[in-house]
Every structure is written in C-alpha cells, then in structure tokens.
Design a protein around this nucleic acid. Sequence first.
DNA 1: AGGTGCATGTAACAGGTTACATGATTAA
DNA 2: TTAATCATGTAACCTGTTACATGCACCT
Lengths: 196, 196
Amino acid sequence: MATVNPSPDSRDQPLTATGRVILGMLGLGKETGYDIKQLVDRSTRHFWAASYGQIYPELRRLEAAGLVSSQSEPSGARARTVYRLTDAGHAALDRWLASTQEPLYELRDEGMLKLFFSDLAGPDAGSPDALRIEHLRAMRARQEQKLQQLRAMEPKVRNGPPGTYLTLRLGIDMAEWFIEWSEAAERRLAANLEQE
Amino acid sequence: MATVNPSPDSRDQPLTATGRVILGMLGLGKETGYDIKQLVDRSTRHFWAASYGQIYPELRRLEAAGLVSSQSEPSGARARTVYRLTDAGHAALDRWLASTQEPLYELRDEGMLKLFFSDLAGPDAGSPDALRIEHLRAMRARQEQKLQQLRAMEPKVRNGPPGTYLTLRLGIDMAEWFIEWSEAAERRLAANLEQE
DNA sequence: AGGTGCATGTAACAGGTTACATGATTAA
DNA sequence: TTAATCATGTAACCTGTTACATGCACCT
C-alpha cells in the first residue's frame, strides 16, 4: 500500500519553537534579526526568551525552508538584511496558531528548589525558617522587578493588539499575586520564628 | 604576589544546577539514580525536571569531584549502585542552600506565545477571540491536571519536611489562581464575541 | 573625539531529550 | 507466563548560551 498522504494532518512541519517566534515577530512587522531581538526583549522575554545565537541562524534555516524571504537593504554602508514572510510562511504561522496540540511548557525555578531542600541546611545557615524567608524574598525581588518592567510598558501596549495586551495583563496579575502570596507566607514563617 | 586563596568565596564550585538537585535528593535519603528520578517525578518536576540521561552521568561527575561516594550493593543478580553524600558533598549542598546570589529562573510557555500572536491568525481559524478562548482552555487544562496531581500527594507531604510542603502549597495555590484567572478572562472574551 | 545604538554574525561550549539497549525481580 | 517495576546506562541529536569579532551611523 503506497500511501502518498497518510493523513491531512501530516503536512511537513519542520518548524522549531524558535522558528515560530520568528515567524510571529515577522508577522507583527519586524524586519531584521536585530529588530526581532529588540521586540522579544521588550515583550515575550518573560515567558519566551531568544538570543542572537538562535535568531540569525534560524532566519537562514527558515529561508532555506521557504518560509521567509530575505533582501539586502543596506542603509548607507551599514549592512541590513530585511526578512519577510512568504505565503508558505504565513500558512505555517496560521497552522501553528490554529493547532490544538498540547502547548509546550517548561519551567526551571531554582528558588523553588531551594525552598524544597531548605530543611537540609546546616545549622550555620541559621534556622530553616529564616533561610526560607530569605529565599522567598529573593524570589519576590525578581517578581517585583518584572512587575515594574511590565507596568512601564503597559501604556504603550494598552491600545495595541488585544492578544499582546492579554499576555501583558496576565504577566502583571501573576506577578502581583505571587508578591502577595510570598508576603503572606513570610508572615507565617516569621510567626514560627518568634514562637521559638 | 603569590596568592593561594584569592578570596574565601572563590572555593571551586563546579556544581551544576542538575548536580545540586542530585545532592539535595541524596540529602533527603535517596540512594540510587533510579530512586532520585522517582522522587523528582513525584515532587520537583513541576518546577525542575530531570531525565536519566542527566542523572546517571551527573552522579559520576559528582563522584569524580569527590562530592558523593558510590558503593555497589546488588540485590541478588540485579545491579544496584548506592550513592551517598561525602563531607565535601554536604558542605557544597549547605553552601548552595545558604548562597544569596540570584536564583536561576527560566520559563518557556508556548500557550502565552500563542496568545501573544493570536491577532495574526488568518480568518479560517475563526475570530481571534474564539482562538484565544481555545488557547486559554488548553492552558487551563494543563494547570488542572497539575492541580490534581499535587492534591493527590498533599496528604503524604503534609506532615513531611516543612520546605517540601511549602513548595507543594505554592504549586497548588498558583494553579488554583491561574484557573480562576483564565476563567474570568474567558468570560470577558465570550462577552466580546456576543457583542458582534 | 567618544559613546551609544544599529546591525550581523560565529565558535565553543553547556545543557538536556529521546530512543535505544539490557536484564533481573516480583506479583498476578 | 506475563506484565509491571526495579535498575542501569549510552549515543545521537537538538537547543540554547556566552563570548568574541566587526564596523557604520548618529549625536554631543
């Protein structure tokens, strides 16, 4: 049985995760690798980061796959390569956005790990509860920093595309929630400490 | 000037992130690579996963570094290598737990990415709001699954080490928060849809 | 004259996943 | 006897970071 197209879902999708981000950014009107990196750093980096070391090679791979086209548009003597989505690129982006398969989710949180193991700390580190308070503070400090950054860009995004705004909103609300949770947890731990 | 010990902080710490997890797990009394993997999968995997492909080679590296010692303890004809923390291993674990430097935090969340780009979806995917609802549902489904798993182990951990319980509590509370947030967001989006 | 921002890129390395391969023990 | 669990490990691959290298354009 020689099947040519085993199923309509199996259209070749060699699209990597980073490739999808790049297609999306091009869809939002970004033109150069540099530009894409800028927007990533100002928007998605809290839930999806990307480095130049990924972006430039990936742009070439996408071009080889026919999903983007490139054009050299130097400004003066300064090199500049402008990328645009091809029809196939648009189609791949659409297919990804419409696909219902389990979205990838990966987290590594060293602060949580330290809390998890905090009972093992030697006595020279103070009481375990004091240590936990310290780690919670460090985790909260990071969220507070993130919150500031997100709030700073809120006015710019407020009247932009609703999807973009939704993720900003989620980031802000989540950070605020964590800050409150960690403060409450710290109060409980501090109460433990006083009882001793 | 021949300095032997430039500073007291620069004790060689070739301890990788995965290495720290392993030291911690050994600290909690786990003995074999298999054992460690089991506990990781039942506890930290939501904020820090690890595969056999990391664990076994890392155990050897830790032994080479003198942080753990190994002993062959076959049960019958079945091979079994038991690892234990050395004094140096205990010290390294303590140092890590007490260290105040910025804890690593890395997240990649494809669901968020899809929300972020959801305005770019072609018309064949339905309205952007309908698409967003779908993605939010997929994200919530995952959190609901995680919540179930965490709740199932809550009774076992409840009277265990407080640090371990704290991370479980945080996981549960965060998942519950996200579920409520996403439901509220969906209601807002659904209201948008009806207005059309 | 000098700093910042625009712009591109690579090489070495570190980190991690997946698939594969093997086999003993135990409970049903 | 057969399936699940215990137990170990490797090789190929993929992904991603860091550090390095280069140079123009623009503003002060």
